[in-house]
């Protein structure tokens, strides 16, 4: 795969030099971040429709924050701090699974359980971080929180590609069942859907996607990219088809524009922030369309 990336970078560099592409495409990190955006955009847009349907926005936020603790643990254990994937994945997966289990068994409201786990994770992370600051520059963690397209390398892209392929091959065939399970678990069960298993599988999907997207969007904001494009799509969709494809489109465009625009305009903002701001513009636009457009109007009460 690495030689494939090199090939793309060479082509982009050539096209940038002859003026077909913007000048910034001469830099490898720009091409890397565009490639990542083209993977993350559709992935988060598609999965976001499910996150919105299942009301798991806060859950994905909690997983994103847990990534910080995962990184700190990885550094403590001796992983390379630029790519502590083992501890990141391990901790976030455990975090997601245990949180979902607790939600099921205690019958407490979702937001209470998630709030508790989020607090525990952040508190633990804060304690470990103090130790970690003795070993590495704390600014490393800014990259985890807000994304850093400058540091994207071939390993990150390979991880993202593998996760995209896995999630697409698992998620697409199971899309209907997951959706059904969120509508009425009892009915879904009667129709032969393994509701609990799919729930855990979906949690796993959100977790691995969150971790894989950290370098582009950042832990704090990856949840926003699950929600905002899907919410924007919801404003103007009249069917599942529209909902899904608008969400994917808005998400992909947000990622691409959010990566390219700050570079072209020389605005020094983190990639995650820029992407979410672009997504927010889409949301505002669609919200206005919904408010103004008659055919999108619903009853107020």
């Amino acid at each position: 795969m690495n030689s494939f990336y090199d090939l793309i970078r060479i082509f982009c560099e050539h096209w940038a030099r002859v003026g077909v592409l913007p000048e910034s495409f001469q830099y490898a990190f720009v091409v890397n971040s565009i490639l990542c955006a083209m993977l993350i955009g559709p992935l988060l847009g598609g999965v976001g429709t499910m996150v919105v349907t299942k009301h798991l926005a806060f859950f994905s936020q909690a997983v994103g924050q847990a990534a910080l603790t995962g990184v700190a643990i990885g550094i403590v254990l001796g992983e390379p701090y630029t790519s502590p994937y083992a501890s990141l994945f391990g901790f976030c997966i455990l975090f997601g699974l245990v949180m979902n289990f607790t939600r099921n068994r205690t019958k407490m409201s979702s937001d209470t359980v998630i709030g508790v786990f989020l607090s525990i994770s952040l508190a633990f992370g804060a304690c470990v971080l103090l130790y970690v600051t003795g070993k590495v520059n704390m600014h490393v963690l800014d990259n985890i929180l807000f994304g850093s397209i400058l540091t994207i390398n071939d390993t990150d892209m390979n991880v993202l590609l593998v996760i995209t392929v896995i999630c697409a091959s698992v998620g697409l065939p199971l899309y209907n069942r997951m959706l059904m399970a969120s509508f009425n678990p009892s009915l879904a069960h009667v129709r032969g859907i393994r509701v609990k298993l799919l729930e855990y599988l979906f949690i796993l999907m959100i977790t691995v996607i969150t971790v894989a997207s950290l370098k582009v969007v950042g832990a704090v904001l990856v949840e926003a990219l699950f929600i905002i494009p899907a919410a924007s799509a919801r404003n103007i969709s009249r069917s599942m088809k529209g909902f899904f494809f608008y969400s994917v489109t808005f998400s992909t465009l947000s990622c691409l524009v959010g990566v390219i625009l700050p570079m072209e305009l020389s605005i020094p903002v983190p990639s995650g922030g820029a992407i979410i701001l672009v997504a927010s513009v889409f949301f505002l636009a669609t919200a206005l369309i919904r408010m103004a457009g008659g055919r999108f109007k619903d009853a107020a009460i």
Binding site: F183, L187, R234, R238, G242
Partner: peptide, 10 residues
Amino acid sequence: LDFDHTLPIT
């Protein structure tokens, strides 16, 4: 059928 009424599912 318990669901979010704003979801665009026909």
